[in-house]
Design a protein around this nucleic acid. Structure first.
Lengths: 117, 117
DNA sequence: TTCCTATATGGCAATATAGGCACATATGCA
DNA sequence: TGCATATGTGCCTATATTGCCATATAGGAA
């Protein structure tokens, strides 16, 4: 597997709402599969498979503790890009809102926005 | 489309060798479709679709210039994660090599490596 | 206008991914 | 040992993605 293919594997692993959700939650700390499964409305075996995909990509690590398996974030350097992307997306939304509703930035800052539009 | 879905769209767009290659190359500067198409061994219509996917995700921007269309990187904050991921992957490879061939780090540093193994 | 070049789009077949069910495995307890 | 709980895997169908071809659109030149 080439370096490019490995990088693609990482992005593929992140390219799913459940898996990205898992990564964002694991940023807060290690969790067992039982906890992770409760965050989403889908079969436990589906969660197992998503965790396996994230683990194979090197994004998370597992640690056995008795019957339970705990997963934690390993590739922490993906967190800054998540923040940045979120910032850009919110910025775009704000700009769209302003141009659509014709409100100046100053208005937004002083009035608080939507309820005065 | 929720924020999570938008983020997933971005990672989906990056989760393809040709598209990730385009992004990495565009980091060096703006290029026309004609240039981009020459980097890869596939149909021009395929390249067009890949560019469209990257554009819809907000990763690249297009600029018309006569007959040609120039594309450039817009979401530059994905570059650091690419570097970091590449660094981690290379680090893993180095560790695997060392443990597999039983070489100490000092040996690698002073001898230069493979030819003395 | 007509022709040419650059790029984009619709359709389709091949391939890949997703998710649930049944089942397998692993660990702890009695 | 036998049983219960936590997690993982194989198989299957539904859905999504990929990439090429044919075709469409857009801009420039004659």
């Amino acid at each position: 597997m080439t370096l490019l293919e490995k990088k693609v594997q990482i992005f593929k692993a992140l390219a799913h709402p459940v898996r990205l959700g898992i990564v964002e939650k694991l940023a807060e700390g290690e969790r067992c599969v039982c906890d992770i499964a409760e965050w989403f409305d889908c079969d436990r075996t589906t969660i197992s498979k998503h965790l396996s995909i994230l683990k194979n990509a090197g994004i998370i690590a597992d640690r056995k503790e008795g019957l339970k398996v705990n997963y934690s974030l390993r590739l922490t350097c993906i967190l800054p890009v998540l923040e940045c992307v979120e910032g850009k997306l919110l910025d775009n939304l704000r700009k769209e809102f302003e141009s659509c509703c014709g409100m100046a930035r100053e208005d937004l800052k002083t009035s608080g926005g939507i309820e005065n539009a």
